[in-house]
């Protein structure tokens, strides 16, 4: 009894003197409730979108829908499939990543290992930050202005005047759009790659130098190898942005749902020509077939949305797997 009173004294003392005690308990409960409610709202909105897309689009998606090309009309029965926009998304993502990857890695290595703190590197970092904030529609506009230059006609198709003279390049093609996409994702990939390289344990780096390895070998054999999961994450981040972007597609890939190049577009000798021509991606297809575009066909738009979401999920899963495998390799056995 005695000891119990003793131990309870301080608490009673605080409770007796400071009236905020109760209100604190209240505010703590209110804070918890606020967090839970906010969380439930966010989760339910996300779930609602997913459920809605699935329920609206699941009826349309079939092998036929996936593998047949879209028709000229987006009206209900004649809408056709989405093979060309699906290919467009995959091709553009692959090409854009391919263009962005070497530049991002080189820039990240430079920023991480070769720079000192001075105005020059501050300027570089600042420009990268600005680039990451530039709206993608501006990048699309910029690429249209650059790539319509007749000197760059090899990236798209020539536009001739009445006399058959090439006056400018069309400036819209898979190749052009992949360069624009690469520019758009550069800052994001650079930032996450630099972070990955910086998180390489310093003992690894110092150990490598102490063994007499050159700087380049240290970067190449130690830093890059042990940050592969982080580098892969950077690439995925960029891929996700390319898959989801619409404005650059609209301006730099052109406004055709179908493949306007030589047919059939999937015939290997025609590949380069196909990539030099315009096309569509799932995002631009969704725009065209939505009521905002010409289609006014919610059903196929939702079907394409479902495929797009599935693609993003698969992309994330595959790259997570690559990161996991690469990480396991460097952790355990090579």
């Amino acid at each position: 009894m005695q000891t119990e009173t003793k131990t309870r004294v301080p608490e009673m003392h605080i409770g007796g003197r400071l009236t905020r005690h109760r209100s604190r308990a209240f505010s703590s409960r209110a804070g918890t409730a606020y967090c839970v409610v906010a969380l439930l709202m966010v989760v339910s909105v996300c779930l609602f979108i997913i459920v809605n897309v699935v329920s609206e689009g699941a009826g349309v998606v079939s092998m036929d829908f996936l593998l047949s090309p879209p028709n000229a009309s987006a009206m209900n029965a004649e809408a056709g499939g989405i093979i060309t926009p699906l290919f467009g998304t995959v091709a553009l993502t692959a090409l854009g990543t391919l263009v962005a990857f070497p530049f991002s890695l080189a820039t990240a290595i430079f920023l991480c290992f070769y720079t000192k703190k001075n105005w020059f590197t501050s300027a570089i970092r600042y420009s990268i930050d600005i680039l990451s904030g530039v709206p993608t529609v501006v990048i699309g506009l910029f690429s249209l202005a650059i790539f319509t230059n007749p000197a760059l006609v090899f990236l798209s198709t020539p536009v001739e005047n009445m006399d058959g003279v090439v006056v400018k390049a069309f400036g819209r093609s898979f190749l052009v759009a992949s360069i624009a996409m690469a520019i758009m994702v550069l800052p994001f990939i650079i930032k996450s790659m630099e972070e990955a390289l910086r998180s390489v344990p310093i003992p690894y780096i110092e150990g490598s130098y102490a063994l007499g390895a050159s700087k380049w070998r240290t970067i190449n054999k130690i830093a890059i190898k042990s940050s592969i999961p982080g580098l892969v994450t950077g690439v995925v981040l960029g891929m996700g942005r390319i898959v989801g972007d619409t404005a650059i597609v609209w301006l730099a890939l052109g406004g055709s749902i179908r493949m306007p190049g030589p047919r059939p577009w999937y015939w290997p000798p025609n590949w380069l020509a196909t990539l030099r021509n315009s096309g569509a991606t799932l995002t631009s297809y969704i725009y065209y077939t939505s009521p905002a575009g010409e289609g006014n066909n919610f059903t196929v738009a939702f079907g394409a949305s479902l495929v797009l979401m599935a693609l993003i999920i698969v992309l994330n899963a595959v790259t997570a797997l690559i990161g996991y495998l690469a990480g396991r390799n460097t952790r355990e056995e090579v």
Binding site: P203, G207, S208, A210, L211, S214, T330, R331, V334
Partner: peptide
């Protein structure tokens, strides 16, 4: 680099690299 090859160093934290 050549100098460092002639001077071995062992650190406070063991630093084997993530390989075999």
């Amino acid at each position: 680099s050549r100098l460092r090859r002639g001077i071995g160093m062992v650190f406070q934290q063991p630093n084997p690299l993530p390989m075999t």
